[in-house]
């Protein structure tokens, strides 16, 4: 058993490592996303490290605070946004590594935490004192309310299944999901249900990370980046980082819920490696899984559709996705009854 001090140290070091991972990998993922999107649009695109250059530039630029902004709120919103996004990452298993704060929170907590970056953006938008930011903040709220329900339904459906499969384990814990991958425990009906839920989560992702078609809160041609319109310099840089980390959070959540597989059990029979090497292999495999999820959920969707309007977003999430999520839930429940 670890002593209390050791545990605190472990958490502190883990937090640092996870934050560094989230930011660095988030930015690289952004670079890959931009590059792939550019190629899908028949152009060359920026160099892979462009997001790093962007952040570097933003951090040395002056942060302008508008005269009629509520400056303390305006300045603290980006920090809250980035911090809360990184906190979520502490509750999600990263490939072979268990979450830093394992045992302290579960999927329900993550659901709640996911709203905080959006709320910070809303606060920052309202504090900007610009009509564009106000419209953007309103849209962000509408968007948040719209995607929350299908997201929650999907997670509840999965947890319900976990509760049936392993009644002794906490149903909402992501570790439980890792121990019993959803595909292994469902029958054919449940399989269809799980696929539907996966699609729902993938479509929720661009809403969470504000990408076309659900980037209504930032829509640059309509409201000139909306909530971010008055932000500049360091503040904008922090929002930029938060956005990058959020993409990692969402995709690792999908990976944790649906693809918690590791390579090591599969390959261990053929090659023998020291434990630490297996960790590295699994971690790289995890990054690959994140990249694939991001490619589908972020890059591919955003290059192949137009931006929706607010009412269309609400209809898409409340009507189509909610119905889909409920169908997925029902299928999984029916599947459980058949057994």
């Amino acid at each position: 058993m670890l002593t209390e001090i050791e545990q605190i140290l472990y958490i502190i070091i883990g937090t640092f490592l996870v934050s560094a991972f989230g930011i660095l990998f988030g930015l690289s993922a952004k670079g890959i996303d931009r590059k792939l999107a550019a190629h899908m649009q028949w152009r060359v695109g920026p160099p892979l490290l462009q997001p790093f250059y962007d952040v570097k530039k933003l951090l040395v630029k002056e942060s302008v605070v508008p005269q009629n902004a509520v400056s303390w709120l305006f300045n603290s919103a980006p920090i809250v946004c980035l911090a809360s996004t990184i906190v979520i990452l502490l509750y999600i298993p990263l490939g072979p590594f268990n979450p830093v704060l394992q045992g302290y929170g579960d999927a329900i907590l993550i659901l709640y935490l996911l709203t905080i970056p959006s709320l910070a953006m809303v606060a920052g938008g309202f504090a900007s004192g610009s009509p564009f930011a106000t419209v953007g903040a309103q849209r962000e709220m509408v968007l948040m309310m719209a995607y929350e329900f299908p997201l929650a339904t999907a997670i509840v459906a999965l947890a319900w299944k976990m509760n049936i499969v392993a009644p002794s384990l906490p149903a909402f814990s992501l570790t439980t999901f890792a121990q019993h991958p959803i595909w292994d425990v469902v029958g054919p009906l449940g399989f269809i249900g799980a696929v539907i839920l996966l699609v729902v989560l993938i479509i929720v992702t661009p809403g969470e990370i504000a990408k076309v078609p659900f980037d209504i809160a930032e829509a640059e041609t309509e409201i000139a980046e909306g909530v971010l319109v008055e932000y500049s310099g360091r503040n904008l840089g922090l929002f930029y980082l938060a956005d990058a980390v959020k993409a990692v959070v969402l995709s690792s959540l999908i990976v944790a819920l649906f693809f918690p597989y590791n390579l090591s059990p599969l390959l261990a029979g053929y090659i023998s490696l020291p434990n630490i090497c297996w960790n590295v292999v699994d971690f790289l495999f995890f990054l690959l899984k994140i990249e694939i999820v991001l490619f589908v959920a972020m890059t591919f969707i955003r290059v192949s559709v137009a931006r929706f309007k607010v009412d269309q977003v609400v209809r898409a999430y409340w009507l189509y996705l909610t119905v889909a999520a409920i169908i997925g839930l029902v299928l999984i429940v029916l599947d459980g009854m058949a057994i």
Partner: peptide, 24 residues
Amino acid sequence: MMMHEVLKLLFKKPFTNKFPAKYA
């Protein structure tokens, strides 16, 4: 639908003429 087209473009050479250098 653009979905089909973008996937095809992903494997095509970019249309851009990279004059004077690929990246600034």
